[in-house]
């Protein structure tokens, strides 16, 4: 199971808490998923989401507050500091949004905010692109986990750049990595795990499904299958057919 900042989780599936039809449905989805981590947003509920936070805390899973909706390093740092107070954890999923339509991370602001927060003792989970140099800078800034996107947040597109994600996985073999954002189907989650990613983070794919609990269960199965496949050392693909039973010498009848 994945280890982040020295803490081992019970599952490689991380689940977001936004956009469910009701808190009761959210709870059923979490139970069905067995997720080890719940991400929770401080920002949208700044007016007093205490009731909702209490419900999320009642799920009994590790909380990972995020800085969703922050558009600059300073804003993200302030939100992270508030989240530490509210949720009593130094884990923070750092999001610095750079582009309004795609919600693509502002990687420059991200590195800046990561540097500040790591120096303040936060355990930073940066939501980043699969760019190798950006990820290198984030590690230099003190991050010990990377969270590259699969595709834009909430798009359900899946793994938009498998080549880039493979290259990133290979570039930093010892660093725990989570594919975050863009996962729409269990097959996307399985594909990320098959590449050797340590976990996936899913929200909209579960929350916006017709039956969120059933989709959460399917995601959990996919993550397990993908991880098992990775550990089983999959065969190499070839362009030539290789029969599993010999054809040569078949009896003439």
């Amino acid at each position: 199971m994945p280890v982040f900042y020295g803490e081992e989780l019970g599952s490689a599936l991380m689940l977001g808490t936004a956009g469910y039809p009701s808190p009761a449905v959210l709870e059923r989805a979490f139970r069905a998923s067995g997720a080890g981590v719940a991400t929770v947003s401080l920002r949208r509920e700044a007016g007093g989401g205490q009731d909702f936070w209490a419900l999320v805390q009642g799920l009994g899973v590790r909380l990972l507050p995020n800085t969703a909706g922050c558009h600059g390093a300073r804003e993200a740092v302030t939100t992270a500091q508030m989240a530490r107070e509210v949720f009593g954890t130094d884990w923070i999923k750092l999001e610095v949004i750079g582009h309004a339509d795609t919600l693509q991370p502002d990687v420059f602001g991200l590195v800046e905010a990561a540097r500040i927060l790591c120096a303040e003792g936060f355990r930073v989970f940066p939501y980043c692109t699969e760019d190798l140099i950006v990820c290198e800078r984030l590690l230099e800034a003190g991050c010990e986990v990377l969270m590259p996107w699969g595709a834009p947040i909430g798009s359900g597109i899946g793994l938009n750049n498998p080549f880039g994600l493979r290259a990133l996985r290979a570039a930093f073999p010892g660093v725990p990595m989570v594919v975050d954002a863009g996962i729409g189907l269990p097959s996307h989650a399985a594909a990320a795990m098959e590449m050797g990613y340590d976990a996936v983070l899913v929200n909209s794919a579960v929350a916006r499904a017709g039956d969120p609990a059933a989709m959460a269960g399917a995601m959990a199965d996919a993550v397990q299958a993908g991880r098992a496949a990775y550990l089983a050392d999959p065969m190499e693909r070839t362009d030539m057919a290789v029969a599993s039973t010999p054809v040569l010498g078949r009896a003439f009848l």
Partner: peptide, 11 residues
């Protein structure tokens, strides 16, 4: 629809 019991003016 925001998970909040805040009754203050709209943002």
């Amino acid at each position: 629809s925001v998970e909040s019991d805040g009754r203050g003016p709209p943002t």
